[in-house]
């Protein structure tokens, strides 16, 4: 099993050993490269979603729970979301397609198929949670397909627009 952190492109794999409820990290590789790893030991606290993280700089608690298929971690006031991915498998983040950030309704489609767009150009507006959101082109390129029309209801994650180079 490999691991990915939301918003980071790197892929991690972790070697660990467990003895009596205490995990010791032997190595962590980043994109297949294993560097020297700090000493990390992790143990669980009771039946709570809590672990104790021990490093050279001391130990501190963190909250961890698997929720809706993702690992959510609260450490030092920050939240991280970690995904499990098949070893050597494709990244879970798709590329080229622009997906709906949330369920909602398409209010307006500003581009046509085959049209070239520049980075940051508004492609669609959608309404979700009573607010309007503009879907912008993340890069310059050609609109390969438009999958929805004005007034359509879309689910979260639905591919709205496919952008080519």
């Amino acid at each position: 099993m490999d691991w990915e952190i939301a918003d980071l492109e790197d892929k991690f794999s972790v070697d660990l050993t467990e003895r009596e409820g205490k995990v010791t990290i032997s190595s962590v590789s980043v994109n297949g490269i294993t560097d020297e790893c700090p000493e990390i030991r992790i143990s669980r606290v009771g039946k709570n979603p809590t672990i104790i993280l021990e490093t050279e700089s001391g130990s501190r608690p963190a909250y961890v729970m698997k929720i809706d298929g993702k690992w959510w971690i609260h450490l030092k006031g920050e939240v991280y979301v970690v995904n499990e991915v098949e070893k050597g498998g494709k990244s879970s983040e798709s590329t080229g397609g622009l997906s709906a950030p949330m369920p909602g309704i398409i209010l307006e489609v500003m581009v046509k198929e085959g049209q070239r767009v520049r980075e940051g150009q508004p492609l669609m507006t959608m309404e979700a949670m009573k607010m309007e959101h503009r879907i912008m082109a993340p890069k310059s390129g050609e609109v390969i397909s438009l999958n929805y029309n004005k007034g359509d209801r879309v689910d979260m994650g639905a591919t709205l627009v496919e952008l080519g180079d």
Binding site: I5, V14, C37, P38, T55, V82
Partner: peptide, 10 residues
């Protein structure tokens, strides 16, 4: 690496 270690250990 700390973050993924926590997930893998959990």
């Amino acid at each position: 690496r700390l973050i993924v270690s926590i997930a893998a250990s959990a």
